[in-house]
Design a protein around this nucleic acid. Sequence first.
DNA 1: AGGGCGAGCCAC
DNA 2: AAACGTGGCTCGCCCT
Length: 589
Amino acid sequence: MEVYYQLVTSAADLQAVCEEAATLQVIGLDTETTDLDPYKGELRLIQIATSATTVKVIDLKKFSEPKKNPDLNCLRELFFASRPTKVLHNAKFDAKWLKLHVGAELGGIFDTLLGSQILAAGETDRRHNLADVTYEFIGEELDKSEQVSNWSADELSPSQLEYAAKDAGVVLRIREKMIERLKAENLIEVAKLEFDCVQPIAHLELAGIFLDRTCWSEQLKKVKKVQLVVADELQEMLSVGALQGSLFGRTEINLDSHTQLTEALTRLGVPLPATTRQWQLEPLANDYPVVKKLLEYRSIQKAITSYGENILEYINPKTGRIHADFRQIGAPTGRMSCNNPNIQQVPHGEEYRRCFRAPEGRKFIISDYSQIELRILADFTGDPGFVDAFNSGADLHRTTAAQLFNVAPEAVTSDQRSFAKRINFGVVYGIGAQRVSNLTGISLNEAQELLRKYFATYRKLDAWLREAASKAIKERQARTVSGRLARFRFDAEDRQSMSLAERNGKNTPIQGSSADILKRAMRILHDELRDTSACIVNVIHDEIVVETDAHEAEAIAQKVEKGMCDAGEEYVKKVPVKVEWVIADQWLK
DNA sequence: AGGGCGAGCCAC
DNA sequence: AAACGTGGCTCGCCCT
């Protein structure tokens, strides 16, 4: 389809564009930049499609200091308003550039990337780049060859401008088709939830988080010292009885090679299980000192490789902070994922987390939902045991332990409580007797008996889980509280794939609803914190880390707690939603 | 040489 | 067979 573009280079033309756009219900939006990193490159073009075939291309090179330039005020107003709806593909990308380089925030986002992912509902074989989505929804090929062209040239070529204009126009046509499909699949609500979460995540990435380089290096130095000793000890133990070793000193093996390790351990007469995984090796540790040493080595090695110097390379030279990438729909359940680096998987140990800290004069508010998945489960199942425990403020794990062990709640030992806790959490994942047995050390028969008792205590919970499993097979899908859809693929001949689908049927609504609540909370907090010193700097599934000026930390913490509770209570009705927070200098609870 | 994949282990 | 769910990272090994 032919797209007509108008190049906008003057304040007067821009004003006219904004005035026209403001009268519309929907506009297409896209940007062209000279880099992928907004802290590095320049924002060159902003394309506004007033119709699928008419696009205004704003050349920011013709506007000096765009962030402060009053000529762009009309643009900032247009963008911030919830109407017209702004249609973009991967809006997070553009939102970051517009925020940083123009000082603009986008209201009323429709993101065709997220829409495509929502419709795919976890089908992993689907691609979601603009070319693929264009083909999928309107059946046209899209030429992306200019995407990587030189966007810093003084004068852009007609071909570049045409390409730029085309992308902004095509999303309008995709949206028309996409809305039909979202409606047909009952996915409008979840789409809105996701679209509203784009801007908060854009700000989260721009804000980044401060990592104390020195603190991290010092920690690493300590671990490396220990590692040398442990590696040497392990080599020594493994080389006993090696053939070539006697003449030329010790035979060194690669301790990280699974093959070499298996060989060496076998030679030493260690009865190796199928794999050398931690959980399989643990029972052998007492009888074989070499196994114990191996486990020690592994845990140190993990610390050095995964949490070593590499993370320091992610510190942005401009901001001195780490700006990780968050994938808004990272898992089929709707959970976010994070990489480059993954700051959702920093070890819980104090020595690591204390390196993430608030800069001078700032504070962290570390805030998390208390047992949100179990509360969601209580709400879904309406099981009186769960519901009453949460409503009365009782300790659910203690209550469960009392039931399982036939003792009064006050008489529950800490061992019994942690036992019950494991079962309660396990249930969320569709745990079976085998796993209970492995986890707790009781026999398979005892584990079966225990689960019978557990589900006899929580009858409605049992019924809900059974129903969830059978629905997963019958309907091949599940939904969360926001209506998010997850489709399951399995082979009716393959028991393993069937039982996986059943466990997914139980787990997806719970894990996914928790993700829904968190995303809703991010939106609420984004609005609540807009004109304060506070910003969200990390999000870890049920935890939100906010950074704020120290003087208003207490007030901000109150806002955060309220926002998170409100988000939860929009979806969870039968039990209260509880949020716990601390104000701290470091990422420590 | 470098991509793909599995093993192993970190987070929730 | 970890038959307890979702991710990402780093390593060795295999393949082209």
